[in-house]
Design a protein around this nucleic acid. Structure first.
Lengths: 134, 134
DNA sequence: ACTACTGCATTAGATGACTAATGCACTAAG
DNA sequence: CTTAGTGCATTAGTCATCTAATGCAGTAGT
């Protein structure tokens, strides 16, 4: 798993995404153990609490479950859930943060919801254009 | 001007919006003085620095200009800018920048356009909710 | 010059998000 | 029972954002 400590995206969200992708890819199977807090923390050179927070996030999503003293495991609906939601929740946080920042700025500037929606569509068009010239 | 100190929207942005609306409504005319920092601060029961920050924001947008020792004044393009474009040019860029950042992050994570639109709607709901609480 | 107003700069306090340090409680193998 | 592993709770440190306290510097009327 690759972690960028200098990213503006919080480490715990990067970790969560990494696990989510791995589960979706079938690296960890249902009811099989995930890397322990300390093991993963050691691997990516971060505090176990940060890994814990990532696992908390995934547990809140129902992707995994934990047994005290045992370890962390992929939940029943974990794999499919990870596949469908997959890379949605890392962004669900990061993307929504960006969106809300824009919304906040817009509303503070007196924009209506309609205007904001219009701007979003325009932004979407802009982005999809640029995508083809890569 | 109505200010909600308990809103999640920073006070200085609320003030900026209030001034912007007033300028757009023709309450303050071109090259006419705006309320002084302290006067406005006293009126809405807030620190002059907070008002200053609001005026800084508007000055950065080109809506107003300041003369040290004299006061703050509506810029030439201030009124029209506030009416038609203002909330749709400078602010538009800021908003679109935020949106596109979110879109970029989302697409990098493999999201579809549909998912992005859904997330945007969710963000919009979130933002409008928090606006009314207390 | 004095005075009373301006905007502005510097500094500090309050709050929230993120990460780390440390220790507790539980489980299982020996 | 001891031990080495587990997850988890508590606390603290760091950083950015927002707001306030205070003082400086410019302008104009008297």
């Amino acid at each position: 798993m690759k972690i960028n400590p200098r990213s503006h995206i919080p480490i715990y969200l990067q970790i969560a995404e990494g696990i989510r992708e791995a589960v979706a890819a079938g690296v960890y199977l249902i009811d099989e153990p995930l890397p322990s807090l300390r093991a993963l923390a050691l691997e990516i050179q971060v505090n176990p609490n940060t890994v814990q927070r990532a696992y908390d996030e995934l547990a809140r999503e129902g992707l995994i479950y934990s047994k005290r003293g045992r370890g962390l495991f992929v939940a029943e609906q974990g794999e499919e859930s990870a596949q469908s939601v997959a890379q949605q929740t890392i962004a669900e946080q990061a993307v929504q943060n960006a969106f809300q920042e824009g919304i906040r700025a817009g509303r503070a500037a007196g924009m209506t919801l309609k205007q904001l929606r219009s701007l979003f569509s325009a932004s979407l068009d802009e982005s999809t254009k640029q995508e083809t010239k890569a």
